[in-house]
Structures are given as C-alpha cells and as structure tokens.
Amino acid sequence: MTAIGRRCLAAPCRLWVYSPAPSVFGNRAGFLLMAEQTIVRQFVRADATPHAGRDRLRWARWAVSPLLAVALLLAWHAVTASGAVKPFIIPPPAAVFDALGAALANGSLLYHAQVTLGEVLIGLALGLTTAVSLGYLLAKAPLVERLLAPYIVGLQAVPIVAIAPLFIIWFGSGAPSKVITCALIVFFPMLINTVVGVRQVEPDLRDLMASLDATRWQTFRLLEVPAAMPVLLGGLKVSATLSVIGAVVGEFVGASAGLGFLINLARSTYDTPLVFVAVFTLTIMALSLYGLVDWLEKRLLSWQQRRS
C-alpha cells in the first residue's frame, strides 16, 4: 500500500491512472479497475456539451450577470425617478453612489469593512475547525452521534438573535462576542456536510483501502478527505456566506465598529443611502468569500474536470 499511497497523491481517481502492473499487485488489478469505475461514477461530472455549445454557455455566463445588474440598476433608477417611492424608503442610485464616495473618502467604509471581515474570518476559522473535527468524530462514531445529536440540533434551533445579547454580557462588546456568533452560525451547515461527506465514501473503496493494508491516516488522507471534499466544499460555500450574517448579527446587538454598526448608525439618522452602501459592501464580502471557495473548489477538484 505504501507504493499505491505515494502514487494516489490527492485524488481517488488517480488510483486508476497510476495503477501499477498486475505483477506487483497480482489479482488486485481487476479489483482496482472495478474500484476505478465506482470512483468515476461517483466523482466525475458528465460533460457531453459540444465545444460550440460550451462557448455559448461561457459567453452567457460572463455576459448575463453584468447585464442583469445593469437592468436592475436601470429599474431601480426608474422607480426612484418616478417619485412613486420616497427617497428615504428607496434612495436613488445616484444618492447611494454619493454616499459610497463620501464613505470611501473619509475612510469609514474601509475601516468598518475591515473590522467585519476580521470577525468573519476568525469566526469562520473557529466554526469550521470545530465543525469539521466534531463532524468527523460523529461520522466515525455512531454512538457519539446518538449521544450528541439532540444537543447539536438543539443548539442549532436556538435563534442567534436571542442569545447574541447574552454573548455581549459573557464575552464583552469587542470582537470575541461577534466571532463566537459568527462561529455558531457557520457551525451547523459545516458539521452536517462533514458527516454526510465522510459517510458517503463508498464501502467498496474502504474495502479496497483495507485490503491494501492502508493505515487509518492513509485512509483518511487518501480516501476520506478527497472523497468528502466536494460535499465539504459545498458546506464551506454555505458557511462562508452565512458567516457574514453572523458577524453582522453580533454587531447589531452592541458594537462600536463594523458594517453592522454602520447600518445601525445610518438607520438611526435616517441615512438610507448609507444603509444601502453598507448592505452592498456586505453582499460583496459574502460574494467574495463564496468566490474564494469556488476557486478553491476548482483547484482542489480539478481532477474531476480532467477525468471528464
């Protein structure tokens, strides 16, 4: 297994690519081939689109989103310019751009965005680490899952907005209370995805690793992690987006900085354009985090594309 382990590198499909000669593994070769078919069935996305169709799709993917944004902007302008909606309810785009310019010029937007991003990243790291560790444990130990599941589900059922004020009392009004709020909100989706990801590894592949005398570490590194990766990254996408909400909920309850605070401040002075600026900044932050995970997914799961 040591030889295979080295050759397997990061992805299970490489078992086939680098499968050694039958003389080395004897009758295991046929089994490897069977395993490869299972792996391919499991991980490889079918992609039978012809080149022309693919080009059109690529063009559409790049063109439609900006066009949709422009259309929304025009509709927004039309609604506000018609006078049907008062500016303190929906401000005109120009007012929002002015507010954006002012917030950028005086540095407040960058400052508050930095504070929120810091809380988001630390909260995300804390929540993910805890969720993945516990999720792996639950996936491997059904007894532990039976013992802890009611508490974990119960924790998820507690409305964050209800306990966020308590975090201020317990952890202070600084970053820790926001980080914990953020970590809590990302915890559950990541935990569930970890359990599902680890559990969905094909028993045949586990048998294969066992038959090759793979150690626990090798099975974890060479089979479980790559096999669970698509599901884990799916969970990470959800968590990354939710983490922004988590930090803002914390800032809403009590803070002196951050985009949630900026929204509260703008709301209290009826500065609706500034509210829009802060909300758009949060949206961009969430989209960027999502995009980062998407990019990571493409990098880590590129073997799927290559196999196809």
């Binding site: 201020i168 009392i169 009004s173 803070a255």
Partner: peptide, 17 residues
Amino acid sequence: GIEPIGFAATEAICAGR
C-alpha cells in the same frame, strides 16, 4: 471607557462588566 452593551444594562452592571 465606553462599552456598547445593547439593552442589557441590568445584566452588565450586575455582572460588573
């Protein structure tokens, strides 16, 4: 110092925060 405590003044004062 000024500490934002939301609307939990009773808890914050009684906890000595």
